[in-house]
Design a protein around this nucleic acid. Structure first.
Length: 460
RNA sequence: GGCUGGGUGGCAGAGUGGUUAUGCAGCGGCCUGCAAAGCCGUGAACGUCGGUUCGAUUCCGUCCCCAGCCUCCA
């Protein structure tokens, strides 16, 4: 059970040893709910979902926390923009986030804390930082005193001097040091705020994750995940806060970051106008195909999102489901006792190498088409389903996959035409038979004549 | 300017100090009334320049290119 993860902090792949093997802890930065989830939000959700599934299998228990950030100036701006309440915005987009992730086969985390439910704890942590001498109050703000934390920059591998060189932000007058960041800031009348020892205000950006991690997982967590863009400043600051609030106790043992998504080779950004919403992608391809597309590249590297990539993912699933379809009458062992082959598990244990794991899946599909032995076929089907389940794939009925689920097809009509064609074939009227087949093909329905009759599928 | 990740065959994408995954696409064959699916076979790659080595795509260094971060973006 050797597991390895690339640790951003040490910049190398390390063997994973949880602090307490009986209870692994993982915290992943969730969304700020001010708009619909885009494909870049979906990538970490899917990746850490796979990691969570793997950890649950490899260790007796896992506590997986993925937060919802429901206090943020972008939320306030969206509310003002749309003329609705802040609660309306966060409720709407939290629900949308859940719907989108569910469509991608992402399981719910064990805990999904919200910032608004942790204000007292946030205030307590800020007080702890003030007491420890790592924070100061200035003009109704409370700021983290970066120079007071000697290890600052350790995670993102930056030196403070270097950071100042290219800084594109002006230093606020209430900061003692340019690198200091806000823990608490004052709220005006119309903005959401809570009473605190420093007046009515709201938390800064980073403190909520430190607080929620502490509240649900303790002082030291095993794995902290998120997008590559969060390494600095978010995680660097989170680490500084937590370590200082806990008097030097390490905050996180393994920092795991996923690469970012580009769209047709270009950065995905509002300014470029190429933000792809999960919601919109789901109208173009099944959620399972989008999930596979996200897992088809190693999590650590960049992923270029293209229509061709989604199409390839659909075809990959066609191939895998084709194998399952051919084994529709092959029995499998009870799902609770499913064994997953080590060849497959080892791929994931090695820094979550999903592309390599997928290759094992294709190998199984190939075996399925060549094996004749009954017991062997049963084993193959079992492996395919069990391994697929760990990736959150292949759990549909193949008929549903090939039926194009919501393609809005008249199934009865297709079946009738297939019967007509069959009659024509028996009568050796191949002209009619081919005409029917071509007609269906034009409508995106492909016919396959197999041993026990004619079956159909929707073209990818 | 600093920091980080990446540059592999037509495309996507793993991996390895020497016999070069996997999927899609291509080519030849089998199967089929013909197809489709599947099977069998097959061509094709490691950004640049150096170094280490018997041998490097794989290790080290240089350079080039791409992407991201550098205070509220997953």
């Amino acid at each position: 059970m050797n597991m390895f993860l690339y640790n951003t902090k040490t910049q190398r792949k390390e063997q994973f040893f949880p602090q307490d093997p009986s209870k692994v802890t993982m915290y992943v930065c969730g969304p700020t709910v001010y708009s619909y989830a885009h494909i870049g939000n979906a990538r970490p959700a899917v990746i850490f979902d796979v990691l969570a599934r793997l950890l649950r299998r490899e260790f007796p228990s896992l506590v997986y926390v993925r937060n919802i950030t429901d206090i943020d100036d972008k939320i306030n701006a969206a509310a003002a923009d749309q003329g609705v309440s802040i609660a309306d915005i966060t409720t709407t987009y939290t629900r949308a986030y859940h719907e989108d992730l569910e469509a991608l086969g992402v399981l719910a985390p064990d805990v999904e804390p919200r910032v608004t439910n942790h204000i007292p704890q946030i205030i307590a942590m800020i007080e702890a930082l003030l007491q420890a001498g790592n924070a100061y109050e200035e003009q109704h703000h409370v700021l983290f005193d970066v120079p007071s934390f000697i290890d600052y920059g350790e995670l993102s591998h930056r030196k403070r001097e270097d950071m100042l060189a290219g800084a594109r932000v002006e230093v606020a007058p209430y900061k003692h040091d340019a690198a200091d960041f806000v823990l608490w800031k004052p709220s005006s009348e119309e903005l959401p705020g809570w009473d605190s020892p420093w007046g009515r205000g709201r938390p800064g950006w980073h403190i909520e994750c430190s607080t929620m991690a502490e509240a649900h997982l303790g002082d030291t967590i095993d794995i902290h995940g998120g997008g590559h863009d969060l390494i600095f400043p978010h995680h660097e600051n989170e680490n500084a806060q937590s370590v200082c609030a806990h008097h030097g106790v390490p905050f996180c043992r393994y920092w795991v970051h996923n690469g970012l998504i580009t769209v047709d080779g270009e950065k995905m950004a509002k300014s470029v106008g190429n933000i792809l919403l999960v919601r919109d992608l789901l109208t173009q391809a099944p959620g399972e195909a989008i999930r596979l597309a996200l897992l088809s590249a190693h999590y650590h590297g960049p992923l270029d999102w293209t229509e061709e990539g989604v199409l390839q993912a659909r075809r990959s699933l066609d191939r895998l489901y084709q194998a399952l379809r051919d084994m529709h009458d092959v029995p499998v062992v009870d799902s609770l006792q499913r064994d997953i082959p080590d060849t497959f598990l080892d791929c994931l244990r090695d820094d979550l190498n999903t592309p390599k794991a997928l290759a094992v899946l294709f190998g199984l599909a190939h075996e399925a088409h060549t094996a004749v032995d009954k017991a062997q076929r049963s084993r193959i089907k079992n492996d395919l389903l069990a391994a697929g389940d760990l990736l959150g794939l292949l759990q549909q009925d193949p008929e549903v996959w090939f039926g194009g689920a919501d393609a809005g097809l008249d199934t009865a009509r297709i079946e009738r035409l297939i019967e007509e064609r069959e009659a024509a074939r028996i009568a050796k009227d191949f002209e009619t038979a081919d005409r029917i087949r071509d007609m269906l093909l034009k409508q995106g329905v492909i016919l396959e004549d197999v041993a026990d009759g004619t079956r159909w599928r929707v073209a990818s």
